[in-house]
Amino acid sequence: MEDTETMFDTEGVTKNFMFLNRKAPYGTIYAQEVLELVLISAAFEQNAAIVFMDDGVYQIVKGHDPSVSGMKNFSPTYKVVEMEKEDAEEDEDIDMVWKIIVEKESMEARGLSTDDFIINVEVLGSQELSALMAEQDVVFGG
């Protein structure tokens, strides 16, 4: 775990963070580095909506094997994100709520269904996603 040293007084502050993943994995580093950001946010026990939209849905499809290209497979990290979400749900001492969401239109446009994903996701149509967006305090887009 990286250091979480703080400088500002954020005691008792809770916000809704959205991590909007719109980029495919491997072609660029964005998908991999945003995962590090999602995981560090868990240390602050904040609400998080981790959304996969547009080519971002390709980040969580099954069967990635970048080893033949010499690249690191970071697919397993999505399982860690899923575990954090489940831990938050099960542990009564943790107030944060995490959601893992796929936008329906992006998924269907790519001929995918929830069976294709390595983690359990909630599928929201663009209108529902829009309503969720309106509830956010901070959006980290990628």
């Binding site: 990286e2 040293e5 400088m7 500002f8 007084d9 954020t10 240390a43 602050f44």
Partner: peptide, 12 residues
């Protein structure tokens, strides 16, 4: 510094 500094400023 660490990535936590980004979440922290998001909160503050």
């Amino acid at each position: 510094s660490g990535l936590g500094q980004l979440i922290e400023v998001g909160l503050a």
